[in-house]
């Protein structure tokens, strides 16, 4: 492995000071993605600033009735926290659909947001990749692209964001709290991750000298009607081909509020507020779910090996909304899809 310096951050201000003074440095928390990428020579930080001992491991109720989740809360602790399991089961379900028990024990909340794509060509330094080496080209476009984007891709990049947790956070309209040299700011989840455009090397709108301190959940939690449905090549421990986070609230039989977010299909968790707006007031019927699915995929575009994901996504949306409406969410241990 490349040589690098190892330092620890004493507190958040020290972490920001250290990263601002060394643009080639990286923070390390759980390390489950960064260390892998360093072994592959994809990430080559000059220095690792260890933030894993900072006091960011609390889950607290907010005055607004939501939750504030410290950036270093491990994924497993977050999924099994009583307030999350009871009030935000969509988030718990999405987390438990991802990775393995061992990785969830290590991976942090903030780090999950900063996961990099699992595109094979991003990982393979022998091939071109605009995300890894801007301007070198995209090997995935005409290569093996089974796992790649069907929505929001660009000529420069067709990679997908790998996180399950982030799909639920997008549906729940979480907020990301960050700290930088200029102080703190809050980023709406929809604005946190980016589409690739001409700058696929930038996954997020987090600045290089900023640190994620917390993720905040609003009070609205959709605990009664939700489902996280993840479709993948094996039943566990694999990234999504298509994942759907569906959440509903009803006013008698009519849809009062709905959230729909897709994973595995784009460079960021994919939401379309116009589709959600069109669903409000409609009945929870197969017909209205199918209309929503059509609308979500209206601009979809497949490549040589992933065009099947367009129809797969439509069907998964209908199924997840049906599960959510019935109050029978997808189990993450009994894998039969009902």
């Amino acid at each position: 492995m490349i040589d690098f310096q190892y330092t620890r951050a004493a507190d958040i201000a020290d972490a920001v000071r250290q990263i601002a003074g060394d643009p080639a440095a990286k923070f390390i928390a759980g390390g489950t993605n960064l260390i892998d990428l360093m072994k592959e020579n994809v990430e080559r930080p000059s220095r690792l600033i260890d933030i894993s001992r900072l006091p960011l491991r609390e889950i607290e109720e907010t005055p607004a009735g939501g939750l504030r989740i410290g950036a270093l809360v491990p994924n497993s602790d977050l999924a099994h926290h009583p307030l999350v399991a009871e009030r935000y089961p969509l988030l718990a379900s999405a987390i438990l659909a991802g990775a393995s028990a061992q990785l969830r024990n290590m991976a942090s909340t903030g780090g999950n947001l900063l996961q990099r794509t699992r595109c094979y060509y991003f990982y393979d330094t022998a091939t071109p990749c605009n995300k890894r080496a801007p301007g070198s080209g995209c090997a995935a476009r005409y290569g093996l692209n089974r796992m790649h984007a069907i929505l929001g891709s660009s000529d420069a990049c067709i990679a997908t964001h790998p996180s399950d947790m982030c799909v639920a956070l997008a549906a729940l309209e979480a907020k990301v709290h960050v700290a930088g040299p200029g102080g703190e700011r809050v980023i709406a989840f929809a604005d946190f991750h980016r589409l690739p455009g001409d700058t696929p090397e930038r996954d997020t709108n987090l600045r290089v000298d900023e640190i994620i301190t917390a993720v905040e959940l609003p009070a609205r939690s959709f605990a009664a009607h939700y489902s996280y449905l993840k479709i993948r090549d094996r039943l566990s421990y694999a990234f999504a081909l298509v994942a759907v986070a569906a959440a509903l609230e009803f006013d008698r039989d009519a849809i009062k509020e709905v959230r729909l977010a897709l994973g595995g299909v784009a460079h960021k968790p994919w939401r379309d507020v116009s589709v959600e707006a069109a669903m409000r007031g409609a009945p929870a019927s197969r017909a209205s779910f199918a209309r929503a699915a059509e609308a979500m995929l209206r601009d979809a575009r497949g490549f040589a090996h992933n065009a099947f994901k367009i129809e797969l996504a439509r069907r998964a949306i209908v199924r997840a909304l049906t599960q959510a409406a019935a109050g029978t969410p997808q189990s993450q241990s009994v894998k039969k899809i009902r």
Partner: peptide, 13 residues
């Protein structure tokens, strides 16, 4: 006491 992948963390951490 928690299970982890020991290949995915540095000893210094």
């Amino acid at each position: 006491g928690r299970r982890i992948n020991s290949c995915m963390t540095f000893a210094v951490m």
